[in-house]
């Protein structure tokens, strides 16, 4: 919500992935919170993936399935001992099925402060075109 600045944030436990495919790698996998919005020209996806570096992020678009996954390296040193643990850490993974045809060559992704911003431009043919009717 862009406007509701004064609302107090409530803590939310991270949602663990509920199986699009069985996980073979050890560790926990979470679904990142996302915003998806669409304009005439493009679809934008914004995802919260704290702890993921740009290099550890995988974005894959195959057929109509967009998959995001990000690896998180533990920031803790090995000699640190737990005092309090309220959130869990693990990988992020999520898949979307896109309804529009995306121009694969123009996809643009940026990662900043743990927030991924993915721009998926629609292919020319999928853009709405206004047809002017000439009156005689």
């Amino acid at each position: 919500m862009a406007d509701g600045g004064s609302k107090a944030l409530q803590p939310k436990a991270k949602a663990e992935v509920t199986i699009p495919a069985e996980q073979m790698t050890p560790g926990l996998v979470f679904t990142p919170a996302v915003d998806i919005f669409e304009t005439e020209k493009e679809i934008t996806l914004v995802a919260d993936m704290p702890g993921v570096k740009a290099g550890d992020l995988n974005i894959d678009l195959r057929e109509n399935i967009l998959s995001l996954s990000g690896d998180v390296k533990s920031p803790e040193k090995s000699d640190e001992v737990d005092v309090l643990r309220e959130y869990r850490t693990g990988k992020y993974s999520r898949q979307f099925t896109l309804s529009q045809v995306i121009d694969q060559s123009k996809i643009d992704a940026s990662m900043k402060d743990g927030v991924l911003r993915l721009r998926l431009p629609k292919i020319e043919a999928a853009m709405p075109r206004k047809i002017a009717v000439k009156a005689k």
């Binding site: 862009a2 509701g4 107090a8 944030l9 919170a33 996302v34 919005f37 669409e38």
Partner: peptide, 24 residues
Amino acid sequence: ERRLPAEEEKAQYHRREREAGSFS
């Protein structure tokens, strides 16, 4: 405070899961 930048006015949302607000 967590602020989310305002997006284009014409944008139509499919999903809105990220939250903004203040905390202490």
